[in-house]
Amino acid sequence: MKKIKIAFKPWMGFVLFGIALALIPLLAEYTTFVKSSTIITIGGTVIFAIAALGLNILLGYSGLISLGTAGFMGLAAYLSAYMTVDLGLPFEVSLIVAVLVPTLIGVLVGLISLKIEGMYLAIATLAVSEILRKTFEEFEFITNGFSGKSARFPQLLGFIQLDRASTYYLIVVVLVIAMLLTYNMMNGQVGRAFNAMRGSESAASAMGVYSLKYRLIAFALATILASLAGVMYVHFIRFAYPSTWNLKLSLDFLAMIVIGGLRSIYGTVLGAFIVFAIPDLFLKQIPFFNQLSYVLNGVLIIEVIMFYPSGLINIGFDIKRLWLKLRKGIHDAGK
């Protein structure tokens, strides 16, 4: 008899993961286990995971650091809010423009990255982000300055008005697509070129990897994802302040990918949950400690780095290895 075997493909994993995320609002509606404010927290986390994924392409795969993620995300957020609210443009149009403009700037930074390395690049990108943030404060015409800019839930194709829950589904879909495309790219020729650039600049150029081209691609991909996250943010949270897009947020993204695991796609999402969602979802539930939830999160982040510097995503392998070792030990003892 012939057996019909369905091979488990990586894309199925991402889709299943997306379905699991999408179920959370339903749980909120039909059970008391999940609160509805949870959706905002988890939605925010998913948005930050999208931007962090871009940073992982840049730092994890290509070895190029950036502390500019927050600035690019903010720029996209303001642009999209301005175009949909003030100019009355369709969501789709403003999405495209709001992604394109920051990406052009991101590519410029990629050009700079040819000359500047390491810590210098980190601070240079921080400077770019600061230029953007100061501009958000001053350019009231678009950003409404310190008072903050408001936006609406997205309207798709001009007539499908989304609400909070459906915007959440949209965000989850964007994340799943981003994960899928990132996975495909990073496991092919482009991803290998990134890896080569990070691992050995000399080997990369000897093998014909044109480092200018791939640096620009890496910065473009990272900025595209940061901008997508910015657009999703402003249409989900429906508000943006200049102070949101500061150094702290860029460092948060860095923390997400380092804690979750460099070059790990699921790890990025895990990292986003730890940095962004854990204080709101869990730490605040601990009696007497709710005031300290963010302090505890800081402690948690430091602990993870100290005791698990390779990223929490690897914890699965390590538990498995420990289990095999234990079983072998028991087996040997039995003899």
Partner: peptide, 15 residues
């Protein structure tokens, strides 16, 4: 710990 991860420690300190 790698230099990048050490930066995250100082982020934890900020928090």
């Amino acid at each position: 710990v790698s230099p990048v991860a050490k930066q995250i420690i100082t982020l934890g300190l900020i928090m």
